[in-house]
Simulated assay, not measured.
Amino acid sequence: MRSLREGLEEQTVVYFGDSTTDLACLAAADFGVVMADDAESKLLKTLKRIGFEVPHVADAAAGSKIVWARDFDEVTQSGLMDRIGV
């Protein structure tokens, strides 16, 4: 993530992840999207446990840094990408 961000100083970095190995990149990105079947996924539970609030993409407020969605259709239908300028 560090090397990616070095080349994209002026760009918004959006990271999609689905496992706990994605945790560091989700936290380091400008905006993160957790892909999970439901709110009880291991990654979502871990993020919440370490202090991240992770609302569903449909319920996300403007200031939410990380959200979750069941699939990419939920992301596109929510208008999230437009709200964050991507």
Rank of each mutant, 00 (worst) to 15 (best):
L4H: 12
R5F: 09
R5A: 15
R5N: 10
E6F: 14
G7A: 12
G7D: 12
L8Q: 09
L8F: 10
E9V: 12
E9K: 15
E9Q: 14
E10P: 00
Q11V: 10
Q11F: 04
T12E: 07
T12Q: 13
T12A: 10
V14N: 07
V14M: 11
Y15A: 14
Y15N: 06
F16L: 15
G17V: 03
G17R: 10
T20Y: 04
T20R: 05
T20G: 03
T20M: 13
T20H: 06
T21H: 11
D22T: 05
D22H: 05
D22Y: 05
L23T: 09
A24E: 14
A24W: 04
C25Q: 07
C25R: 07
C25G: 10
C25H: 09
L26D: 04
A27C: 11
A27S: 14
A28M: 08
A28F: 08
A29D: 06
A29P: 03
A29R: 01
A29W: 04
D30M: 09
D30N: 11
G32V: 06
G32I: 04
G32A: 05
V33E: 04
V33A: 03
M35C: 09
D37T: 02
D37R: 11
D38T: 13
A39G: 09
E40A: 10
S41K: 04
K42L: 10
L43Q: 01
L43S: 03
L44K: 03
L44H: 02
K45S: 06
K45P: 00
T46D: 00
T46Q: 07
L47D: 04
L47I: 02
K48P: 00
K48R: 14
K48A: 14
R49F: 04
R49N: 05
I50V: 15
G51C: 11
G51S: 12
G51A: 02
F52S: 06
E53S: 10
E53Y: 07
V54F: 07
P55D: 04
P55K: 08
P55G: 03
H56T: 08
H56Y: 12
H56I: 03
H56K: 12
A58L: 01
A58P: 02
A58T: 08
D59N: 11
A60K: 00
A61Q: 13
A62G: 07
G63P: 01
G63I: 00
G63D: 15
G63W: 02
S64L: 00
S64R: 04
S64Y: 06
K65R: 14
V67Y: 03
V67M: 00
W68K: 00
A69T: 01
R70Y: 11
R70M: 07
R70K: 09
D71M: 06
F72I: 07
E74T: 05
E74L: 04
T76M: 11
T76P: 00
Q77H: 12
Q77A: 15
S78M: 07
S78F: 08
S78K: 13
L80N: 05
M81Y: 13
R83C: 08
R83S: 13
R83H: 09
I84T: 05
I84A: 04
G85M: 13
